[in-house]
Computed example of a mutant assay.
Amino acid sequence: MKALLLLAAWPLAACTPSGGEAWFPLHTGFSQTYAVRVDSEERRPDERWTLRVTSPATLDGQPVAVRHHSEGVSYWLREDAQGIRRVAIRLDIDAEPTPEKEPLWVLKAPYTVGTEWTTPTVPYLILRRNEHPRELKHSHRVPMGWRIEADDDQVTTPAGRFGPCLRVVGRAVLNLYTDPVNGFTNVPLTSREWYCKGQGLVKFEREEPVPPGFMVGGRLVAELVD
């Protein structure tokens, strides 16, 4: 991270916002590409993810925005005065979307410090060392509490410096059997997301640290590059 004094001297990114005043633009054609890295004792390759808002659709007779991930999944999102919720997902191999049992908040209004909500989450980075399947995401699910902790952050990514931004933080605890000595351990899962006015989600982080033993944890950082 750059020194704070150096950051303070940089101007905001010169690029023109694509989404007007929206914290999370969902108009057709809006596209973002992220550089993604995972810090872990197991080396994982860096990646590029592109998310693009495709043509709108309808679900249960209501209009939705469709945000497609280059990894092969589309998120169906509904926006209203209460905020933005994910109402369905569709894999590229599926003919139809799969509705969520309950809509999941992406951002809840009002977009001010102190707004809170809860969604379920799974461990994305934790792996078993010597058991299969190695991933836990299909077997472990816990509630994550989210809170808007700032509404005037400035964020620097390879694409430039952006502001004002919402800083949204999610926290959960996953109880895992990590090794014979410690037995079951409460493992913190922490997510941080920055939504900048007119630019949408420009950076996100995920931390899933585990003590040495049966599991491998890690930290993911994704930053806007284009």
Rank of each mutant, 00 (worst) to 15 (best):
I93F: 01
I93M: 04
I93H: 04
E96S: 05
T98K: 06
P99F: 03
K101T: 14
K101P: 15
E102G: 04
E102Y: 13
P103E: 05
P103G: 10
W105E: 01
W105D: 00
W105M: 04
V106N: 02
V106A: 03
V106E: 12
V106T: 14
K108H: 08
T112D: 07
E116H: 06
E116M: 13
T119I: 15
P120W: 08
T121M: 08
V122Q: 02
V122D: 00
P123L: 08
P123W: 07
L125Q: 14
L125C: 10
I126C: 13
R128Q: 14
R129W: 00
R129E: 08
R129H: 05
N130I: 01
N130P: 13
E131K: 11
H132A: 13
H132K: 11
P133L: 11
H138S: 02
S139K: 02
H140T: 08
R141C: 05
W146Y: 10
A150F: 01
A150Y: 03
D151F: 03
D151S: 14
D152H: 15
D152A: 13
T157W: 11
T157V: 14
P158N: 07
R161D: 14
R161Y: 15
R161C: 15
F162G: 01
F162S: 01
P164A: 04
P164M: 06
C165S: 11
L166G: 02
G170Q: 01
G170I: 03
L174H: 05
N175V: 15
L176N: 09
Y177A: 02
D179I: 00
V181F: 05
G183T: 11
F184T: 09
N186G: 04
N186K: 03
V187C: 06
P188A: 07
P188S: 06
P188G: 09
